[in-house]
Design a binder for these strands. Structure first.
Length: 579
DNA sequence: CGGCCTTTGAAGATC
DNA sequence: GATCTTCAAAGGCCG
């Protein structure tokens, strides 16, 4: 169960003692990973080659049969509903989301209008970076061509993207669209679009403190709609709903400024006119629609037989009927998922890779390379998400979704035959190997602090200079076998403290039992065996004090130069044989 | 066209 | 209590 914030100080999450952190074992790994961004992709690739585990995929396909459905339609519907749901959700959310979630629509971040300044007057970290982050895809494929392996930073893309900043500058707490998808369908402003928001705890309406407002105000759809982007970057890309502009989507009647941050973001991101009255089934028993609610038609099983026992247990009603009527409430996104959602676009933009599997591997590494603080932000956000989720769906249980998804099978099952595995993995490797073997890795692998500066000022200060972390991109990727692949997962599972929040603390010691605290030291324990052995000294950045504290522009700068030095150094990984 | 791949984390299930 | 399993997102790839 989501831990309810024990009455912490300010609105929820003030004291997040619950924030789980990975343990030091990872730190070690982190270090090695930080060495070079190139490794991101590199490792990914290699690991794919050397997967130490078999993916006997689909051994069971019993549930294979899923009712064919018009994905697009259902999805669209689902998303639209999600937005509305989120709107309501946020309304109640009160202080839960101090940080605005960006809607996922970069176009909302028009620099001029965003002038997003934090309450303290500083420029919002994400104000400008947001754009870049969400629009990296502007020209992924093109970027490949454009990308200079030596300096493939976003800066190069800037010729296409007007505002380019390191995505990492985006505040981690920036609105992450959870539960669903980024459908932009703003519409008639709901009555709840008042500055007042409900305190999730007390349920008492309150006016959000400026600090709770979005540091960077996403433009209201209406406002945005009136702005014609010279480059046409507003155009949806890849047909992703995220960038799609539903009919009337931009005709939001309400001036952006009229809304508070959270409202505007939520409205812009999810609210849809036609969602004002969501279908009954999308409403939770509480009557509160939520983005997590997915149209039953979308992921439901074809018939009752697919319903997990738990489902049966829970709902004596005929499975099928139940399914049809029962909305699919998605699980709240965890910290990593939130992170992924936020960073995916960036990674995609920087790499030629498009396969999610590969991207996710990179993201996973980056995740590990994030500083505690950085991760903490996501953990906190995730925690709040869970909180809210539990509030909205008191009766919901993760098990409700069991069996609603096709089985993933595999997972570290050693039983699978090695041979098969090897064959398959290699095949996959090819699959994930982009024609272009390099990925302009974004930075982050060097250390989160680099990636997500507390403020964009540093980056902004030197527009000419690519984001610090991007420099590493200059390093060509080299494929090195890295047995780690699955192994890592394996380890993680083994050492997973399970119930406790600090899961993946793979192996490390841990502390896990108790609540991990942010004040984790850097070089603690450590020995994370699963990762490649570095043949090169670990960059001090990995151990930089800033790891323990929010990165300052100075740090950024310093680190930046440091990275520059490192960039020139070739990296070599020695794979450690898997046992 | 549905499922797999891949990642971490949370939570339920199982032992 | 420890371990295992499932699901959450995402999009290209494969059978």
């Amino acid at each position: 169960m989501p831990q309810l914030n024990g009455g912490g100080g300010d609105d929820l999450g003030a004291n997040d003692e619950m924030i789980p952190f990975k343990d030091e074992g990872e730190q070690e790994e982190k270090i090695s990973e930080n060495v070079s961004a190139e490794r991101d992709l590199d490792d990914v690739k290699s690991s794919l080659v050397n997967e130490s585990e078999n993916n006997s995929s689909s051994s069971d396909s019993e549930q294979a049969e899923r009712r064919p459905q018009t994905r697009a339609d259902s999805e669209s519907y689902e998303k639209a509903r999600d937005y509305f749901s989120e709107a309501l959700r946020r309304q109640q959310d009160g202080g839960l989301f101090k940080s605005p979630r960006y809607p996922g629509y970069p176009f909302l971040m028009i620099p001029d209008l965003t002038n997003s300044y934090l309450s303290n007057g500083s420029l919002s970290p994400s104000a400008r970076t947001y754009l870049q982050m969400k629009w990296p895809i502007l020209d992924c494929s093109a970027s490949a061509g454009i990308k200079d392996s030596r300096s493939p930073t976003l800066g190069h893309l800037s010729n296409k993207v007007p505002v380019v900043q390191h995505a990492h500058h985006v505040h981690p707490l920036t609105p992450l669209i959870t539960y669903s998808n980024e459908h932009f369908s703003p519409g008639t402003p709901p009555s709840h679009l008042s500055p007042e928001i409900l305190d999730p705890k007390t349920g008492i309406p309150r006016t959000p403190h400026p600090s709770e407002l979005s540091p960077y105000y996403p433009l209201s759809p209406g406002a945005v709609g009136s702005i014609a982007h010279p480059l046409g970057w507003l155009m949806p890309q890849q047909g992703q709903p995220m960038y799609s502009i539903p009919p009337g989507g931009f005709r939001h009647p309400y001036p952006a400024l009229a809304m508070n941050a959270s409202m505007s973001s939520l409205v812009s991101s999810r609210f849809s006119p036609h969602m004002v009255t969501p279908p009954p089934h999308s409403l939770h028993q509480t009557g509160i629609p939520h983005p997590a609610i997915v149209s039953p038609a979308i992921k439901q099983e074809p018939s009752g037989d697919n319903i997990s026992p738990s489902m049966h247990a829970k709902s004596p009603v005929p499975p099928k009927k139940e399914e049809d009527k029962k909305p699919h409430i998605k699980k709240p996104l965890n910290a990593f998922m939130l992170y992924m959602k936020e960073m995916r676009a960036k990674v995609v933009a920087e790499c030629t890779l498009k396969e999610s599997a590969a991207i996710n591997q990179i993201l996973g590494r980056r995740w590990h390379s994030l500083s505690r603080e950085e991760q903490a932000k996501y953990y906190e956000l995730a925690r709040k998400e869970r909180q809210l989720h539990s509030q909205l769906y008191p009766g919901w249980s993760a098990r409700d979704n069991y069996g609603k998804r096709k089985k993933r099978k595999r997972d570290n099952k050693p039983d699978s035959k090695p041979e098969d595995f090897s064959i398959r993995s290699k095949k996959q490797c090819l699959q994930y190997l982009p024609s272009e073997k390099r990925c302009d890795s974004p930075a982050s692998s060097h250390g989160s602090m680099l990636d997500s500066p507390a403020t964009p000022s540093a980056a902004l200060a030197s527009p000419a200079a690519p984001a610090a972390t991007h420099s590493e991109q200059a390093q060509p990727l080299s494929l090195t076998t890295k047995p780690e692949g699955r192994m890592h997962h394996h380890f993680s599972l083994a050492g997973k403290p399970s119930g406790s929040s600090s899961s993946s603390s793979s192996t490390s010691s841990s502390s896990s039992s108790s609540q991990p605290t942010i004040s984790l030291p850097i070089g603690t324990s450590g020995s994370q065996p699963t990762t490649p052995i570095l043949t090169r000294p670990i960059p001090f950045t990995s151990l930089h004090p800033s790891m323990l504290s929010p990165p300052s522009p100075f740090h950024q700068a310093a680190l930046h130069s440091h990275h520059a030095l490192f960039q020139s150094q070739p990296l070599s990984l020695v794979t450690k044989p898997t046992e």
